[in-house]
Design a protein around this nucleic acid. Structure first.
Lengths: 227, 227
DNA sequence: GCTATAAAAATAGTAATACTATTATTATGT
DNA sequence: ACATAATAATAGTATTACTATTTTTATAGC
């Protein structure tokens, strides 16, 4: 199973890239190295020039894969959510009880690397940190609506859809399932950001230990029909 | 009262700027025009050069007020939270019941412009939109820890503290008051962002009409000691 | 009204970024 | 062996994000 997962191809909207980075060794290296570099130096300091030097290639070559570093970021993020969907589905397979499934799903979102999975050319540990520290920048732009229309965020939205469906399985009449789902997903990463940089603003520690159980409890209490 | 509020000086940490923009007409114009420009063109397209042209002045002159556009953004955000604290306090004055106070406070965070307040040189409407669309960029950087140590985010953190205190007044034993508070504040803006750009991910409309009541309900249900 | 001082404006310049274009070289598949 | 595509090398541009220097203008005290 581990082996199967390792070589699985994550589907990423092909409008994100100019040339599929999975289609060549160089492409894979671009992805691999950019994860390390963005993780260690931050998105703003990261440039195609620096990446080109690291890869002993040229800027223009990288530009044949990605239009700009913003698109590269979207690629990484989209890949992440695409990958997480597999994890979510696999982890919750055979779970019939919707409450248990919700718990399992939220736990997966909060601790995606629990299974210690490895991947061919993508290092998940730093990628997850990029998600925590940088991913919001992908849609906090003036181009968000066009890019959204082009489907660049669909992998992200599918994760939301699954959570929404799960919540509605538990309480079909709850009117704020969408809002709750997006809060869960956002918080699963943002609370860890706060733990890293604004510990006063959270009760979660850096490992995110109680995060999952907190979020599950919040959801269940919130959607419970009281009578 | 309106008049009093209009001329009130919002306290902003003086490490954010090089020269206090409130101290001169030009400084006020820098703030005023930058709000309009960032709002209309987005933070990335906004430059000191363009601002200088708009103000018929030069880049170097603007640089005497702010180190760079990032600091200017932090200034605007910090001013906003500083101002919101006044609003929060004023709106909840004389409310003794902590549950009622929480409702009032959250309502203020979600609908800060309800009182149709005007301000001397700061246009609150576009500023609020900047908070919704751009404010996360202020701390999603590699410099966040140094800037946080320097107190650049203290106005923001004080808002959190008030909410935390309020939650603890209702249930002193609830162990996740900090986490819940930061989720509330974050969601009060982020759900409106989603309403604008990802309506499928929220049940809130663009005016944010049910947002306050949803958040209040979520908090109250979550912190309720069930027995 | 004169002068010191500070603020602002004008001017110039630099290193880095975010690209684009052109040509030469190398690899690959038939 | 040849066509094709990918990559590398080289060069260049507009813009950004600054810094430095000098000149002009405004202000406040004497």
């Amino acid at each position: 199973m581990q082996e199967l997962l390792k070589s699985i191809q994550i589907r990423v909207n092909d409008k994100i890239y100019l040339k599929d980075p999975e289609s060549s060794e160089l492409g894979k290296n671009i992805v691999r190295r950019s994860i390390d570099m963005i993780h260690s130096m931050g998105l703003e300091a990261f440039t195609f020039k620096k990446l080109a030097i690291e890869l002993s290639t040229t800027e223009s070559t990288i530009y044949r894969y990605f239009e700009n570093k913003h698109k590269l970021l979207i690629y990484l993020i989209s890949w992440y959510w695409g990958w997480l969907e597999y994890e979510m589905v696999l982890n919750s397979i055979n779970i019939a009880d919707p409450v248990e499934k919700l718990g399992n799903t939220i736990e997966t979102i909060c601790h995606p690397l629990k299974n210690n999975i490895e991947h061919d050319h993508i290092n998940l540990q730093p990628l997850h940190k990029i998600i925590i520290e940088e991913s919001n920048k992908a849609f906090l732009t003036k181009e968000v609506d066009i890019e959204n229309e082009d489907g660049l965020f669909s992998n992200y939205k599918r994760i939301n859809d699954r959570l929404i469906k799960n919540i509605k399985e538990i309480n079909p009449h709850y009117p704020y399932a969408n809002t709750l789902a997006s809060i869960i997903i956002d918080s699963s990463n943002h609370q860890r950001f706060l733990a890293n940089h604004f510990p006063r603003l959270t009760d979660i520690d850096k490992t995110g230990s109680d995060l999952g159980s907190f979020l599950v409890e919040m959801v269940l209490k919130t959607i419970k029909t009281d009578r």
